[in-house]
Amino acid sequence: MLVFFVFLNNRLSALKVADYSNLNYFGPLQSIPYLGPIYGGVRVGASVYIQGSVPENITRFRINLLCGESDSSDVALHFNPRFDGWDKVVFNSRKDGSWMSEEKIRRMPFSKGEAFELVIMITSKGFQTKVNGKDFFLFPHRLPVEQIRAIQVSGDVSIQTINIIGAAGGGGALPGGTGGGYPGGNMGQGGYPGGHMGAGCPDGMGGRYPGSDMGGGFPGSHLPVREKLSNIGIIIVSYSCFLMFFSNFYKPVQGMAGQPVYNPPVPFSTWIPGGMLPKRTIIIRGSVPHGAQRMGFNLVVSRTRDVAFHMNPRVQEGVVVRNAQTGGQWGSEERQLSGSPFAEGQYFDMSIRCGNQRFKVFVNGQHLFDFFHRTNFSEIDKLEIDGDVQISYVHF
């Protein structure tokens, strides 16, 4: 049996959870520079998902994937954006105390004073980086990924969350004492680090977020940029543990109009503020855990319980089934696609756009399919998500 660790105010609570392969933990608040362990390491197919922001006066910051838990450890990946008049991002590795040759990418995907979303996907060929939903650079492996044991962050940056998805798993004690609860809130009331899940967003609401139309600022951007690693949650998660734990303590989160929801438990349901209208877009970001079978994304008419749009990625089959249910009866399935973007251990960024005649679905910036309306879309008032999926962000 493994142990599920939850930190609160730098204290440790251990809750026993059976039958899962990856350790899920939330780190305590730390000051930058930060160095934290990745228990069990990572593997090909894992992703590191980071949300943060950089100040107006940024010079540089760095994110290192370390092959140990100290500053002197080998570095499998050194990711180093530099604002120095010749803006660039430097990639490198360090072996036996010596840095190797630098890869300098003379493009800057980060903007001064703005929020960012960074995904580092560990592929068989290297570290594929994506910034704000766009592919940036593939850095080839120089050291075995199986040696990675920690993540390090330093420099001019504020980090809100770090999620390590699809880690290799394993256990191990974390330092700490006793405590309880869940960071930043009351379990029975749906607390989440720095805010209230019922209110939809940790640290209150700022506004503009990459890929949305929220306008000005960033949630939590009022926190010190260089001194605090604000509300950091390092998550190594398996679906069975995630569902088992949160189903005992949380009710589905009801997102408020105009506010995103971060890291909700699955099954998840929320009212759609104002219902579905032409040009309304739903943004859903998440990942597919290893061993996933299928998941469901439903747009529902709560009055009749009709499912106006049902999207059912079946991971092992490599298909995405679409359908609708009216009067308790399912219609004809739609399956035609050249492939599915929903694969084990992979991150996804999906948008569902409502038009007068159909829904248009985009995944990872690519148009995936259209689904023509079979019911009156204006009556849709609820989003439901269930199955083998981890959700990090939902916004209307």
Rank of each mutant, 00 (worst) to 15 (best):
D19P: 00
Y20F: 10
Y20W: 08
N22R: 15
S31N: 14
P33W: 01
P37G: 05
I38Y: 07
G40E: 00
G45Y: 00
A46D: 06
V54H: 04
V54R: 10
E56K: 13
N57V: 08
N57E: 10
I58F: 03
R60Y: 02
I63F: 07
L66A: 10
S70N: 12
S70I: 01
S70P: 00
H78D: 05
H78L: 01
P81G: 08
D84G: 07
G85W: 00
W86L: 13
W86M: 08
D87P: 06
V89C: 06
S93D: 02
K95G: 08
S98V: 15
W99G: 12
R106T: 11
P109T: 09
K112A: 08
V119W: 00
M121P: 01
Q128K: 14
K130L: 14
V131L: 03
K134P: 04
F136S: 10
P140Y: 05
H141M: 07
H141E: 02
R142I: 08
L143Q: 04
R149L: 08
S154Y: 04
Q160K: 08
I162A: 12
I164D: 04
G166M: 07
G176Q: 03
T178P: 05
P183W: 03
P183K: 15
C201E: 01
P202T: 09
G207H: 03
G207I: 05
Y209S: 07
S212M: 11
F218D: 07
P219V: 05
L223T: 14
V225Q: 07
E227K: 14
E227D: 14
S230D: 06
I234C: 11
I236K: 08
I236T: 15
V237N: 15
V237S: 14
Y239F: 13
L243C: 11
M244L: 08
F246T: 14
Q254L: 06
G255D: 01
G258M: 02
G258D: 07
G258K: 02
G258A: 04
Q259H: 12
V261E: 07
N263Y: 08
P265M: 12
P265W: 06
F268V: 03
G274M: 04
K279E: 12
R280T: 12
I282A: 13
I283M: 11
G286S: 01
G286F: 05
S287M: 08
V288I: 15
H290W: 07
G291E: 00
G296F: 08
L299H: 02
V301Y: 07
V301L: 09
V307D: 04
A308P: 05
P313Y: 04
P313D: 02
V315F: 01
Q316E: 10
V320P: 03
G328A: 09
Q329V: 15
G331D: 09
G331R: 11
R335I: 13
P341F: 00
F342P: 01
F348M: 10
D349I: 06
I352Q: 07
I352R: 06
F359N: 05
F362S: 13
F362D: 13
D370G: 04
F371Y: 15
F377D: 06
G387Y: 03
D388H: 13
